[in-house]
Nucleic acid binder design. Structure first.
Length: 288
DNA sequence: AACTTGCTCAACCGCTAAACC
DNA sequence: AGGTTTAGCGGTTGAGCAAGT
C-alpha cells in the first residue's frame, strides 16, 4: 500500500486566501517548519488541501519573497535564461532569489513576450521572425543560416562564417523591420543601427548568447563552444542553442548597441549587462 | 455613469518523477 | 516488483482592476 491520500477534497475551501488563513499558515510554518504538506492544513487548522497550502506559502507568504515589479535588468536576465532553458520556470527562478517560478512565468507571458514580439523575435525560439510581403510568417533558424556557412574549422573560415551570418541577419532584420515593426513601434528610425540592434540581440539571446558575450576590454564579442556548458543546460530544446559557432570576432561597438536598444525600447537593463556577466560568471565560472 | 475590453496575477489543474509501502 | 501517493513543475483559468468608449 502507498501513502495516505493527500486530502479529501470534499469540504475543503478553494479560491482566494483570506488574511486569517494567511496568518494561520504563516504562524504554523514559522513555528513548526514543514515536515509534510499533507499534515500542514490539519495542524494549522485550515480547510485547505496540502497542495494549496504549499502553493500559497511558496508563491505568496514566504518571508524571503521579493515583492514588486521586475527591474529591467531582471527582465533581461529572464530573456537570456529563457533562451538557454526554455519554459523551465523553476530553473529560471533559481537565478532570482526571492522570485517564484509562478511570478516569472506570469511576467514572461504578460510582458516580456510582447516586447520580444515587438522586436520581431519569436518568444518561443528567440529567433528572428521574418514576415514576407504576404501574411505568411516563417522563422529563420540559426541552423538554416549556417547551412550556407563554410566549415569553421579554420580561422579564415570562422571569419567568413561570421561575415556571412552578419550579412544574412542584417538582411533579415531589415526585411522584418520594414514589414512589421513600423506600425507597432511608431516613429522608429529604421536604419543601419536598428539592424545592428537585432543582430546583436540574436547573439545575446537564443542562438549565440550562450556562447558569446561582449568583451569590454577588446571591444569585441567572443563566442565559445557550447561544449563548455553544463550538460543539463546545453541539452535544452531550443534549436538555436548548442549548434554554435566557434570563435567569432565582431567589430561592432557595444556602446553603440546599448544606445540603440535604449533608443528603441528604453530597456535600461542593457546598461547593466556587466552585471549579467557577473551572474554568468557565478553560474559558469569555467567560462570566464 | 454604465458598459466593454484588455491586462495582471493568484490560484487551480493535470502531469510526472520520486518516494513510500 | 509494483501499485499508490507526494511534491514539484508547467499550463491554464478567471476574478479583479484599469483604461477606453
Amino acid at each position: 500500500m502507498g501513502r495516505q491520500p493527500c486530502c479529501d477534497k470534499v469540504g475543503l475551501k478553494r479560491g482566494p486566501w483570506t488574511i486569517d488563513e494567511d496568518h494561520k499558515l504563516t504562524n504554523f510554518i514559522l513555528n513548526n517548519g514543514i515536515q509534510c504538506w499533507r499534515m500542514v492544513p490539519k495542524l494549522a487548522g485550515l480547510l485547505r488541501c496540502g497542495k494549496s497550502c504549499r502553493l500559497r506559502w511558496i508563491n505568496y507568504l514566504r518571508p524571503d519573497l521579493k515583492r514588486g515589479g521586475f527591474t529591467e535588468m531582471e527582465e533581461n536576465q529572464i530573456i537570456q535564461l529563457h533562451a538557454r532553458l526554455g519554459n523551465r520556470w523553476s530553473k529560471i527562478a533559481s537565478h532570482f532569489p526571492g522570485r517564484t517560478d509562478n511570478e516569472i512565468k506570469n511576467h514572461w507571458n504578460t510582458r516580456i513576450k510582447k516586447k520580444l514580439k515587438l522586436l520581431g523575435f519569436d518568444p518561443v525560439t528567440h529567433q528572428l521572425i521574418e514576415q514576407s510581403s504576404t501574411t505568411q510568417k516563417h522563422v529563420i533558424s540559426i541552423e538554416q543560416k549556417s547551412e550556407t556557412i563554410p566549415d569553421s574549422s579554420s580561422s579564415k573560415a570562422q571569419e567568413e562564417s561570421s561575415e556571412v551570418r552578419s550579412q544574412s541577419q542584417n538582411s533579415e532584420a531589415k526585411n522584418n523591420l520594414d514589414s512589421v515593426k513600423v506600425e507597432e513601434l511608431g516613429e522608429l528610425i529604421l536604419d543601419q543601427t536598428s539592424n545592428e540592434l537585432l543582430r546583436n540581440y540574436d547573439k545575446l539571446s537564443g542562438g549565440s548568447y550562450v556562447e558569446s558575450w561582449f568583451n569590454p576590454e577588446t571591444n569585441t564579442s567572443t563566442s565559445y563552444s557550447s561544449s563548455a556548458l553544463s550538460t543539463e543546460e546545453s541539452n535544452n530544446n531550443n534549436p538555436s542553442v548548442g549548434e554554435s559557432f566557434s570563435i567569432i570576432q565582431e567589430d561592432n561597438s557595444f556602446e553603440q548597441w546599448v544606445d540603440n536598444v535604449d533608443y528603441i525600447l528604453s530597456w535600461d537593463c542593457f546598461y547593466n549587462l556587466d552585471e549579467d556577466f557577473l551572474f554568468l560568471e557565478r553560474d559558469q565560472p569555467h567560462l570566464t
